[in-house]
Write a protein that binds this DNA or RNA. Structure first.
Lengths: 240, 240
DNA sequence: GGGGAGAGATGCCGC
DNA sequence: GCGGCATTTCTCCCC
C-alpha cells in the first residue's frame, strides 16, 4: 500500500497520468450529494486534473471531478484521495489498491467527426425538394431571439416554411421547438401564414398528435448513414 | 506485445476487466463516423462488454462502445481490437501497448444520490408556501399524455397552478415545457384560468421575456445545497 | 462569458 | 421496448 501511495504522490507532483484499481468508498458533495459504499473501482487521474471513477459495469463514470486539486492524506489509518474544486468536493477512501500505473502519455490528436445534425440541414438546404416538391431555399441558421432556425424555405405558393431537423426520432420537445420558431417568425415578419415542418426519420405518436393540433407537418427524412466502409467487405462482417 | 495480446485474449475469454494504455489509432462508424489519428490512450474493457477510450485530457471518453462483441485480430502486421455492435463498429489499431492489467473486480454497490430535481419538487409539494403565500398542494407528478407535471397547486383564489421545477437556471426549453403543461391542464379540465409558475434559482433574459409574453411567472427558488459536511471544517478547507 | 441547442448523448422511470 | 425527461449532463457555436 505504501509503495502505491508514494508512487501516486510522485505522479501527482509530476503531473503524470495515473491509472489504478482499488477497493474504495466514495463521497461526493457539490452540485448534488452522492454516497458510494465499498467496492472495486477503476480510477483515472489525468494531467489536466480530471479524475474519473468507474465501476466494473456501465458506460458512464459513477463519480468524477474536473480541474480539481488532488491530494492524498492519511485519515484514521486510511489513505484518502481528496479532490477539491471551486464548489465541489470528492473523497475516495482507499481500503486497498490492487495495482497502479503512472505514465507520461502523449496525445495531441483531435477527434474528427462527421455526421451531425448540421449535415442533415445542409442536405435539405442544398435541395429542399427532398421535403416537398417546389420548395425553395430561403435561409439557414436564421437567428431569432428565441433560438436558431435550421432551414427557412418558401413553398410553391410563396409561404414561408420553417424546417426543423432531427437526426433521430422526433418527440414532444422537437415539436415545441418548431412551434417556438414558427411563432417567432410570424411575429417578426408580421405574417400569419407560416408553415412548420419537422424533418426527421420518424416521430412518436404524441408528437404527431401535437404537430397536427398545431397545423404543422412531418417530413420523413433519413439522416445520412455512416457505414460505407463496412458495406464493401460485408463478407467479413458476415463471419460474426 | 505478444505477451500483452495473449493476456488480453485470455481476459476477454474469461470476461475480466481489462485496463491498459496504448499508442493507437481509432476508427468508429455507426451513428456517426469518427477518425482519431495515432496517439497515447487509456482503454478500459468491462465484463459487460463496455469499451472506453480516454485521451490523457478531458472528462468524456473520446470513443466508446456498449455491449459490443470484442475480438483481437492481426491485420497487416498490426493487432486490431475490433468491436462489433448491432449497427456500430469500432476498430483500435494497436501500435504499441505500454502496460496492461486484467482483473476480476467485484462491485455490487449502487450510487446513492440526493439533490436531484425530484427532491426540489418534494420540498415544494410539502410546503407550497415557499413559492407564494396561500398556495395549497393539489397533486404531484400528475400524468398528462404530454408529460409529467412536477407539482399542481391551488392558489388563494382557487385557481389551478402548474409548477415546473428546475434545479438550475431556467431557459427557453423550461418555459415551453411549462407552457405545454398549462395548456394541457386547461384542455383536460376545461378551465381557461390556469396559472403557470417556473420555480428555479434564476432565469435567462429571453426565458423571462417569453414567460411574461404568455402570462406565466417565475419563482426564485434555490435548490437544496449539499455542502453541509464541509461547512463544519471550513478551517481545513481554508488551507487550500 | 452567457445563451441556446446538439450529442455516436446516457440513464431512469413509467406504461 | 417505447416515451418522456433529468443529467454532478458535456460540448460546441455564436453573440
Amino acid at each position: 500500500m505504501e509503495t502505491h501511495i508514494s508512487l501516486l504522490q510522485d505522479a501527482l507532483k509530476h503531473n503524470e497520468t495515473v491509472v489504478f484499481t482499488a477497493n474504495c468508498r466514495v463521497e461526493y458533495s457539490g452540485r448534488a450529494k452522492t454516497h458510494l459504499p465499498l467496492g472495486d473501482r477503476i480510477i483515472i487521474i489525468k494531467p489536466d486534473n480530471t479524475l474519473l471513477i468507474h465501476q466494473p459495469q456501465g458506460a458512464t463514470p459513477v463519480n468524477w471531478m474536473k480541474e480539481s486539486h488532488i491530494t492524498v492524506e492519511k485519515v484514521d489509518d486510511l489513505y484518502v484521495l481528496q479532490c477539491r474544486g471551486q464548489k465541489e468536493f470528492l473523497d475516495i477512501y482507499l481500503h486497498r489498491i490492487h495495482f497502479m500505473n503512472t505514465a507520461n502519455l502523449s496525445d495531441g490528436q483531435k477527434l474528427q467527426l462527421t455526421g451531425h445534425e448540421r449535415d442533415m440541414a445542409d442536405l435539405i438546404a442544398a435541395d429542399p425538394g427532398v421535403i416537398e416538391e417546389g420548395l425553395r431555399f430561403a435561409g439557414q441558421e436564421e437567428q431569432t431571439t428565441y433560438g436558431f432556425i435550421d432551414v427557412l424555405c418558401y413553398d410553391k405558393a410563396g409561404n414561408l416554411v420553417v424546417v426543423e431537423c432531427k437526426r433521430y426520432k422526433g418527440g414532444l420537445d422537437a415539436v415545441t421547438q418548431l412551434r417556438r420558431y414558427v411563432e417567432r417568425i410570424r411575429e417578426l415578419k408580421g405574417i400569419t401564414k407560416v408553415r412548420g415542418i419537422l424533418a426527421c426519420p420518424s416521430i412518436t405518436g404524441n408528437a404527431k398528435k401535437m404537430l397536427e393540433n398545431w397545423g404543422f407537418e412531418h417530413a420523413a427524412i433519413e439522416p445520412p448513414k455512416y457505414l460505407e466502409r463496412f458495406r464493401k467487405d460485408q463478407r467479413r462482417l458476415g463471419e460474426f
